[in-house]
C-alpha cells in the first residue's frame, strides 16, 4: 500500500540551535579576503551536501557567513567556504 502521509521536513534554519547562515555577497567576500589577507581556500570549509547549504541553496565556491550568538562576544561572525562533496 502506498504511503499516504507525505513526510514533512522541518525547516532546520528555524531551529534555535542553528545559527543564522547567509550567502556572502561579492562585496563582503572582497572585504573579508582583504581584511585577513587570505585566499578562499584558507577559510573553514562546509560540504555542499551539508543540510544548511542545501536549505539556503549555497553552491560550491560560494562563501557562507555564519552569525552566531557568543557567550564571550555576544555575536560572532564566521565564514565558511562551500566545497563539493566527494560523492
Amino acid at each position: 500500500m502506498a504511503k499516504t502521509i507525505k513526510k514533512q521536513q522541518f525547516d532546520i534554519m528555524k531551529h534555535k540551535l542553528v545559527p543564522l547562515h547567509e550567502i556572502a555577497t561579492e562585496e563582503e567576500i572582497k572585504e573579508l579576503l582583504e581584511k585577513f589577507k587570505i585566499t578562499p581556500d584558507q577559510l573553514p570549509k562546509i560540504l555542499n551536501t551539508d543540510p544548511v547549504p542545501i536549505s539556503i541553496g549555497a553552491q560550491p565556491g560560494q562563501i557562507i557567513k555564519v552569525i552566531r550568538k557568543s557567550q564571550t562576544a555576544k555575536e560572532a561572525v564566521a565564514y565558511r567556504l562551500v566545497v563539493e562533496s566527494d560523492k
Binding site: K35, F36, I38, P44, S70, A73, A76, V77, A78
Partner: peptide, 22 residues
C-alpha cells in the same frame, strides 16, 4: 597578529581568538 587563530598551513580556525579576542 590580526587576532585570527590559524594553524601552520595558514588555515583559519577562528576568526577572532575566543570570539572576543580577550
Amino acid at each position: 597578529n590580526d587576532g585570527t587563530v590559524r594553524h601552520s598551513g595558514g588555515q583559519i580556525i577562528q576568526f577572532m581568538y575566543g570570539e572576543d579576542g580577550v
